[in-house]
């Protein structure tokens, strides 16, 4: 293995450096996320015209679709961090992978809930065994498995390594599940309604969608960094750099 990779990652992955870096980035990411989300909601809920078929019901895509994208994106990010953590034993990567899982699970859950809310007016039922929804449900179980395995170990780093391994197994599994569920759907002649509607979307619908996608990405960064900072403070409590921060804080308000 090339030597510069661990060297470079170790420098970026030093807990105090990452802690400070995350502390600077987090408020900006959060503020931008809120601004972008407000703009996207205004664009999506007020400016964009009603759909000629679905009326106003379609507007839930401005939540549903970005959440669905994020549920997959975060799984990918978690798997990359898990791989880096397992191969080069970099603590920050393990923490990033483990703290990504609950955020990803939350987005997956939102996707499922908004999907079934949308399903009620569209299909006349809250739940249908549509290929996408079913895959999303399996994805939720993958996330929950990672979270559950992480917390079942007494040693957090060992739990992180085991759960990282599970996350990597899952990344192989996701396309297999998607393929098999698609095959199963054609076999059983399930619903053929396409969730994503026509492939060419009106510009007035597209820009709120993309803005919301940006907002969710920024929110993920803000949320992840906050979680990683809390995790680092807890697990590195014995280290000098944490003591220095604690002393500085107490100096302000004794």
């Amino acid at each position: 293995m090339a030597n510069w990779v661990p060297l470079w990652l170790h420098k970026l992955g030093s807990p105090p450096i990452f802690y400070r870096f995350a502390g600077v980035v987090r408020p900006w990411a959060l503020a931008l996320a809120i601004l972008a989300a407000l703009a996207a909601l205004y664009g999506g809920l007020v400016l964009a015209p009603a759909d000629y078929q679905q009326g106003d019901a379609y507007r839930i895509i401005f939540i549903h679709v970005p959440s669905a994208w994020m549920s997959l994106f975060i799984y990918g990010a978690m798997a990359v961090a898990a791989f880096v953590g397992l191969v080069w034993r970099i603590k920050i990567a393990e923490v990033v992978a483990m703290e990504s899982a609950p955020i990803g699970a939350a987005f997956t859950f939102i996707t499922l809930v908004t999907g079934s809310l949308w399903g009620k007016p569209m299909w006349g039922t809250w739940w249908t065994w549509d290929a996408r929804l079913t895959s999303e449900l399996v994805l939720l179980f993958l996330y929950l498995g990672v979270i559950g395995l992480y917390h079942s170990f007494e040693d957090r780093r060992q739990g992180a390594r085991a759960a990282s391994f599970l996350a990597l197994i899952g990344i192989v599994n996701v396309p297999i599940v998607h393929f098999s569920v698609n095959w199963w759907n054609t076999l059983h002649q399930g619903s053929t309604v396409r969730i994503l509607g026509p492939s060419h979307i009106e510009m007035s619908m597209l820009w709120p969608l993309l803005t919301m996608m940006l907002a969710t990405k920024l929110y993920y960064i803000a949320s992840l960094f906050a979680r990683v900072r809390a995790d680092l403070i807890a697990t590195e409590s014995g280290k000098d750099w944490v003591r220095a921060i604690a002393l500085a804080e107490n100096g302000d308000r004794p």
Binding site: V138, G145, G148, L149, V181
Partner: peptide
């Protein structure tokens, strides 16, 4: 390396056994 694993195992195996 864990103590309780029955339910956890089911949760972890479900996504793998779907296909």
């Amino acid at each position: 390396g864990t103590r309780r694993s029955g339910m956890l195992l089911a949760l972890m195996l479900l996504p793998l056994c779907v296909p």
